[in-house]
Write a protein that binds this DNA or RNA. Structure first.
Lengths: 164, 164
DNA sequence: CTGTATCCTTAAAGATACTG
DNA sequence: CAGTATCTTTAAGGATACAG
C-alpha cells in the first residue's frame, strides 16, 4: 500500500508547489524568515512547533533551495534564497485571505513597505492592467502540458460548450 | 498526547488560512473547481485522489463555506462560493511559483482572461502602485494582534536595530 | 542555544467492496 | 455516477530526554 500520493507526479505547477511547500508548517516557517526571525529558537517559540519537526522542515527547505544557513554551525542563521523570497506574493495572498475570512477582530499583522504604505489587496492582472478573476479566467494547455492535461482541459471545454 | 497542533490557535492570518486550506489536497480541488471540473468523478479522475479523501475534503470545504452543492442530491455539482473564489490570487501565486521553480519544460497550463490576454506575474503593491517585496517589507502589529504577537514583532525589531 | 535520538499516538491516506 | 463502510498501513507530529 503506497504511503501518500506524491503530488510532484501531477502535471500541474500548483501541485509541484504544494509538493514542496504544501504541508501545514512550511509556509509559516517561511513567514517567520520574512519577518526576520532567523534563529532556530525564535521560530520554534514563535510557532510552538515541535523541535524535531522544525529541524526536519529546515533541512527540507535547505535541500529544496528555499533557505540557506549562515553564521556558525553551532549557532546558524537561516536566510531565504531568491527562490524562497519568491514565495512572497503567494504567502501574502494567503495571509490576506485569512485577514478577510478568518480574522474577526481585524488583521493580526499589517504589511507595509519601508515607508509605511500599506499593501493593497493582491489581484491577478494582465500586462496591461486588466484584472483576471476566477469568473473570467481561462485555462489553456501550456508548453509543459502532458497529454492527460490537454485531454482534461479539452473535455471540460467540450462539456461547457454543450452546457451553453 | 495531542494529535496535531491546531494552526487556528495561532494569532496569524496565514495560520488561519492554512488551517483551512493548508493540507496537500484542498487547493488542488479548488483549482479543479476554478477550471470548471465540478463533478465528483471529474475531480477524482483528474487528481487521482482516493474517493474517500475526496469525499471528506468536499465535505470540509462545504462546512467551511468555500463551496456549495447544486444539482440533484444524486448527482451534485460543486461550485465555489465568494469565499472560495477569493482564493484565486493565492492559488495563482502558488501556481506561478511552481511555473518558475519547478516546471523544467515550461508551464503545464497558461492562464488568461476571456480575451486571451496572459496573466502577468503577481506582485504585492501599495495602493499607489509601488511594489512591496520580501526585501523591503515591514510587518507591524495590526488591530487583531495579540499581546504575544506584539511582543514577537517588538523583539525582532529590537534585535535588528542592535544588529545594525 | 541548537539540535538529535527515541518512543509513542493518532490521523492521514489509500485499497476494496458495497449501496442507492 | 456518487458516494459510504471498513480495514490497513504508514507517515506525520509531538513529548521527553540527552549531547555538543
Amino acid at each position: 500500500m503506497p504511503p501518500r500520493t506524491r503530488l510532484g507526479a501531477l502535471n500541474c505547477s500548483l501541485a509541484q508547489a504544494l509538493d514542496i511547500v504544501g504541508d501545514w508548517w512550511t509556509l509559516l516557517i517561511v513567514r517567520d524568515l520574512f519577518i526576520g526571525a532567523n534563529r532556530f529558537g525564535e521560530i520554534q517559540k514563535s510557532l510552538g512547533i515541535a523541535r524535531t519537526m522544525l529541524a526536519s522542515r529546515l533541512e527540507q527547505l535547505e535541500r529544496n533551495g528555499i533557505l540557506e544557513r549562515r553564521g556558525t554551525p553551532r549557532r546558524p542563521l537561516y536566510f531565504l534564497t531568491k527562490k524562497g523570497r519568491d514565495l512572497f506574493p503567494a504567502l501574502v495572498a494567503l495571509m490576506q485571505w485569512g485577514d478577510r475570512w478568518a480574522a474577526p477582530v481585524g488583521p493580526p499583522m499589517r504589511l507595509t513597505d519601508r515607508n509605511g504604505r500599506a499593501a493593497a489587496p493582491i489581484a491577478v492582472q494582465t500586462r496591461d492592467g486588466a484584472t483576471i478573476t476566477g469568473e473570467n479566467a481561462r485555462f489553456a494547455a501550456g508548453p509543459g502540458a502532458a497529454a492527460s492535461t490537454r485531454a482534461f482541459i479539452e473535455a471540460l471545454a467540450a462539456t461547457r460548450r454543450r452546457a451553453r
